[in-house]
């Protein structure tokens, strides 16, 4: 690398603050998203805390592992973790200037998000029409389960729409997205993954006996 290359490198980095690494001051979009996520986390926290209190104070509580399909939930977890990786690969591709590759990774992320929503739909259908006939008002377990997982499912759907819109913009001739735009969307998507980590453990896996 010659002196000219070095000069070009440093000027390119300075000239493109949107793609600056995270140690620099966060942009308005990132800061706004973090602020939103902190408040959103309070919502999830309140729901999980309410669930914990109701579960502890209830005379009896059904074993979630007997009512819910753990293999399905594990597959959904794997889907969400994988989608967190693919959205990061989309950001990395955009940083390298590869818009085509970024589109592929964004499309994979959207597909995985839709797969998660489909898995949740299948789970609900099995619970509602299966031998348990577990409706929203069947008991406290059902009410809290549908509320928490439904709230999370809406977040996944919102994330799919958000990333889908960015995918369309990336595919567009004008190429209106930058790595910074997708990075802000990725923050939301990782948060959805973060919330599911808690839900999977505390709603699906914690034993009652």
């Amino acid at each position: 690398m010659g002196t000219g290359d070095k000069a070009m490198t440093s000027s390119s980095v300075v000239a493109d603050p949107a793609d600056s690494v995270a140690t620099a001051a966060p942009g308005a979009g990132k800061l706004g998203m973090w602020t939103f996520l902190v408040t959103d986390a309070m919502g999830f926290g309140a729901l999980l805390l309410g669930y914990a209190v109701l579960r502890t104070r209830a005379q009896t509580w059904p074993n979630p592992m007997q009512r819910l399909s753990i293999p399905l939930a594990a597959a959904m977890t794997f889907t969400l973790i994988t989608s967190s990786l693919t959205v990061m690969l989309a950001v990395a591709a955009l940083r390298k200037g590869s818009r085509g590759l970024a589109s592929v990774w964004l499309a994979v992320t959207v597909f995985l998000g839709l797969l998660f929503v489909a898995g949740q739909g299948y789970e609900y259908q099995q619970l509602l029409t299966g031998p348990q006939h577990l409706g929203l008002s069947t008991d406290l377990f059902a009410s809290t389960f549908y509320t928490i997982t439904g709230f999370h499912g809406l977040h996944v759907l919102a994330g799919v729409i958000y990333l889908g819109a960015l995918l369309i913009l990336t595919l567009g001739a004008a190429g209106k997205t930058s790595a910074a735009h997708v990075e802000v969307a990725a923050l939301f998507w990782h948060f959805v993954d973060f919330a599911w980590v808690a839900i999977f453990t505390f709603v699906y896996l914690l034993p009652t006996v």
Binding site: M1, T9, S12, D19, V21, S84, M88, L89
Partner: peptide, 22 residues
């Protein structure tokens, strides 16, 4: 020079992302 200036940290990040995923 064909590589983008941000490709070195990007590659490192991608590698660490794979490790965290695993």
């Amino acid at each position: 020079m064909t590589e983008s200036p941000t490709s070195a940290p990007t590659t490192t990040r991608s590698r660490s992302s794979f490790i965290i995923f695993l």
